[in-house]
Design a protein around this nucleic acid. Structure first.
Lengths: 237, 237
DNA sequence: CGACCTCTTTACCCGCGGGTAGGATGACTA
DNA sequence: TAGTCATCCTACCCGCGGGTAAAGAGGTCG
């Protein structure tokens, strides 16, 4: 089970293996950085499909058509691998924040822009690692690091919400709870979205943003039907 | 590390161990069902704190101040344990649906009632197992079973949304995407909520429902500020 | 008392998988 | 041609943890 696949070239049953620098060309010189990145990507895909604990380093190696020690030649250990995937995902979102920062628009529009990028990132190949990576899987040091990055994003969203409330583009609300709700809905995409879906990540993110914006309660002056009913105490068990 | 703790009674450092039928009374006769349930609860708490894969059966046993084989006396294997926790959590939600079914109220109110119970369940001790249990951790048979239960809940939410749209209490929207967004936001509670928080699960659920209802965009006839701006194409990278 | 049953323990098995030692296999240099 | 370096492999270690065999430890009933 440790042996390298040597069957007829091009007969790889592994659906993924999109582009392994090893498979594609037999030349050895191929820049360390490129191969290292390929390892990260392969790990992300494997984690995404099977989960962190159900993915062995042999799996990742097989996906690249190499052996386990080769993987270890490019990355120090499994934890580091997960961490790198995480960072790759988070970096997309941080980029979105930077991009939005220099933007002349009301708070809600800026928030929506960030949320769309956020959703896209979660639906990307690194989405799983960014979202479902448990703190318990990492050493205390890395766990702290990740928590800090997550917190930074959370604070960024809250900030946009506050700014939106201030400039009147967002209805008054609790920024903390609202941020949790928005981020939660988007994060959850990583739990059900598989790449081979009909909708693209961007489309899903856009749909979600629309829902958040409008809310469930009908708008407009017309049909104020059933508006007085509201919650009606007594149905809460 | 397999030995049972025998220190001074009442000096348990384990914060949990809320009520172990073994710890509380030395009598042997204590009904099998009660102890079995205690095992399930202990497992749920352990999974909740450390994750499924980072929890060994020795951990669960230690939490109850017994040994591993005792746990196996009440449950067949670890997978079964996770499954039971999952079912316990889902059952709360199914109960909410049953309860709401026989209710004369517009769709949105019924949906909100379900969502509140849903949020409470996710914040409960079985929330983690219900929400974060990965399909890959279970045998194909159980995975199918769980998928079916989840799908049932999803369909129930979609149905309430459709009914709400029909009776005019919910604004027209895509039921599928909306259900994903709502359930996602609530599910995510299990990722950040720890019991010892200031807010109770019910309070969080209520806050979320309010956010979903109203949406971010300000309502009312007054201050239509910044309403014409909307999305503004060109900021989408 | 002795047979039997329920419950819990001690002591063990063993495979999976993270991680490593050290040896090929070239390519490039001198 | 010999030496050096980067790369990748074969072969192995070993601990953790799921799971089990079989032996107490009491309690109950005849």
């Amino acid at each position: 089970m440790n042996r390298r696949r040597v069957g007829p070239p091009g007969a790889g049953k592994q659906a993924a293996a999109s582009s392994s620098p090893w498979r594609t060309s037999r030349e050895r010189r191929h820049d360390r950085a490129v191969k290292r990145e390929a390892v990260i990507r392969a790990a992300a895909q494997a984690f995404n499909e099977k989960g962190y604990h159900n993915t062995s380093l042999d799996d990742i190696a097989a996906r690249l058509e190499v052996t386990k020690p080769t993987v270890y030649y490019y990355v120090s250990n499994k934890e580091q691998l997960l961490f790198q995937c995480f960072v790759a995902g988070v970096e997309q979102i941080r980029a979105a924040f930077r991009q939005v920062r220099e933007l002349r628009a009301p708070g809600r529009a800026r928030l929506n822009a960030v949320l769309r990028h956020y959703g896209e990132a979660v639906a990307s190949e690194f989405g799983w690692c960014m979202v479902r990576a448990e703190d318990q899987d990492l050493s205390p040091a890395m766990s702290r690091h990740i928590k800090a990055l997550k917190s930074e994003i959370d604070q960024g969203i809250r900030r946009l919400i506050r700014e939106g409330i201030q400039d009147g583009s967002i209805a008054p609300c609790d920024p903390k709870m609202t941020a949790f709700a928005l981020a939660g809905a988007l994060n959850w995409i990583a739990h059900w979205y598989r790449g081979n879906q009909s909708m693209t990540g961007a489309a899903i993110a856009a749909a979600f943003v629309t829902i958040f914006e409008s809310g469930l309660r009908p708008r407009g002056s017309a049909l104020k039907v059933a508006a007085g009913v509201r919650t009606r105490r007594g149905m809460r068990a």
